[in-house]
Deep mutational scan, measured.
Amino acid sequence: GVTLFVALYDYEARTEDDLSFHKGEKFQILNSSEGDWWEARSLTTGETGYIPSNYVAPVDS
Score class of each variant (00 low, 15 high):
T3R: 05
I29R: 13
G1P: 02
W38Y: 13
A7H: 00
S61F: 07
L8M: 15
D60P: 10
V56C: 05
I51D: 00
F27R: 00
E34Y: 05
V2N: 15
T44G: 10
V56E: 00
F27V: 07
T15G: 13
L19V: 09
V6L: 06
K23T: 06
T44F: 05
S20F: 02
P52S: 12
G24L: 03
I51N: 00
R41K: 15
P52E: 03
R14S: 14
P58F: 03
Q28D: 12
V2E: 15
K26W: 02
I29D: 02
F21I: 09
L43G: 05
T15D: 13
A13F: 02
Y9W: 11
V6F: 05
E34R: 10
S61Y: 07
S20G: 06
D17R: 12
S53D: 04
L30M: 12
T48D: 09
E16A: 09
T15F: 12
E25Y: 06
T45A: 04
T15A: 07
P52H: 11
A7M: 00
D18G: 13
S32R: 12
V56D: 01
G1I: 15
A13S: 10
E16P: 11
D18V: 13
F5Q: 07
D18Y: 10
W38L: 13
N54Q: 04
W38D: 02
V59G: 08
L4S: 11
H22C: 10
Y11G: 02
I51L: 12
F27L: 11
A40T: 02
E39R: 08
L43F: 09
P58G: 09
P52D: 14
P52F: 12
S33L: 12
E34D: 03
T48M: 07
A13E: 05
D10S: 05
Q28C: 10
G24E: 11
G24I: 01
T3G: 07
R41C: 11
G1W: 07
P58K: 13
V59A: 15
N54C: 10
I51E: 00
G35L: 08
F27Q: 00
L4M: 15
E12W: 04
N54M: 04
R41Q: 14
S53A: 14
S32V: 06
A57V: 11
T15W: 06
V6N: 06
R41H: 14
N54A: 09
V56S: 01
S33M: 11
L8Q: 12
S33A: 11
E16V: 07
L4A: 07
P58V: 09
D17C: 02
D10T: 04
S42H: 15
D18T: 11
A40W: 00
F21Q: 00
V6K: 14
F5S: 10
Y11V: 02
E39K: 10
G49M: 01
T48N: 08
S61T: 15
Y9S: 12
D18F: 12
V59I: 10
Y9C: 06
T44Y: 07
T15H: 15
S42W: 00
D10M: 02
F5K: 10
F5E: 02
S61P: 12
T15L: 14
E34G: 09
A57T: 12
S53W: 06
S61N: 04
D17M: 14
S42P: 01
Y11C: 07
S20Q: 04
E47S: 12
S20N: 10
S20R: 04
G49V: 01
S32G: 08
H22G: 12
D17I: 06
S33P: 12
A57R: 14
E25H: 04
L19K: 02
V59S: 14
E39F: 03
D60G: 05
R14H: 14
S53Y: 14
A57E: 15
T48P: 03
G49D: 01
T45L: 03
E39Q: 14
D36I: 07
A7T: 03
A40Q: 00
S53G: 12
K23W: 02
Y9N: 15
W37Q: 12
G49Q: 01
K26A: 06
V2F: 14
K23L: 04
E12F: 14
H22K: 14
K26P: 03
N31F: 02
E47Q: 12
Y50H: 07
K26H: 15
D17N: 15
N31E: 08
S53P: 13
W37V: 13
T15Y: 08
S61Q: 02
G35E: 10
A13M: 04
E47F: 08
L43M: 10
E47P: 00
Y9A: 15
L43K: 12
S42Q: 11
A57C: 14
K23I: 07
G24T: 03
S20E: 06
V2S: 15
N54L: 06
W38G: 01
V56R: 00
T15N: 13
L8Y: 03
A7D: 00
T45N: 14
G46Y: 09
D18H: 11
V56K: 01
Y11E: 01
E16S: 07
E47C: 09
D18L: 12
V59N: 07
L19I: 14
A40E: 01
A7Q: 00
E16Y: 12
Y9R: 15
S32H: 08
G1H: 07
V56P: 00
G46V: 02
I29N: 02
D60S: 11
F5D: 01
D17S: 10
T15E: 12
V2A: 09
G1F: 12
D60M: 05
Y55W: 10
V2T: 15
D10V: 01
H22N: 09
T48R: 11
K23Q: 03
S53F: 08
F27G: 00
N54E: 13
L30A: 07
A13Y: 02
V56I: 06
K26C: 03
L19Y: 10
P58Q: 14
E39H: 11
E47K: 15
S42T: 07
D36Q: 14
Y11H: 13
P52W: 05
Y11A: 04
G49W: 00
L30F: 04
Y9M: 15
R14N: 10
G1S: 11
E16N: 08
E39A: 05
D60H: 08
D18C: 10
F5N: 06
G35Y: 04
R14E: 14
A40Y: 01
D60K: 10
G24M: 03
D10G: 07
S33F: 08
K23A: 09
R14M: 12
W38R: 07
E39C: 07
D10I: 01
F21S: 01
E16K: 10
E25D: 13
Y55A: 15
D10Y: 02
E25V: 05
T45V: 02
W37N: 15
Y9V: 08
E39S: 08
S20W: 02
Y9L: 14
A13H: 06
D18S: 13
L8R: 12
T45Y: 03
N31H: 01
L8V: 06
V59T: 09
S42M: 11
V56A: 03
A13L: 02
A40V: 09
V56M: 08
L4E: 15
S42N: 14
L4T: 15
I51Q: 01
H22I: 09
N31I: 05
G49P: 00
G49N: 01
H22P: 10
P58N: 03
I29Q: 03
E12A: 12
R41Y: 04
Y55D: 02
L8A: 12
K26N: 13
A7I: 00
D18P: 01
E34K: 08
E12I: 07
Y9T: 15
L30R: 05
G1D: 01
Y11I: 02
W38N: 03
S32Q: 10
L4R: 09
L30K: 04
T3D: 03
P52C: 12
T15Q: 14
T44A: 12
W37F: 14
D36A: 09
E34L: 08
A57N: 08
D60N: 07
V6I: 08
K23D: 03
V2L: 11
V2K: 15
F27M: 12
T3Q: 04
G35Q: 12
S20L: 02
N54S: 11
Y9F: 14
I51W: 00
G1N: 08
T48W: 06
F21G: 01
Q28E: 15
F5A: 05
D36S: 07
E12C: 10
S20C: 07
F5G: 04
S53K: 14
A13V: 02
W38E: 03
W38P: 03
D17A: 09
E16I: 04
R14A: 05
G24D: 11
E34F: 03
L8G: 10
G49H: 01
E12L: 08
I51T: 01
G46Q: 12
V56Y: 00
V6A: 14
N31C: 05
K23S: 07
T15V: 13
P58W: 02
W38M: 13
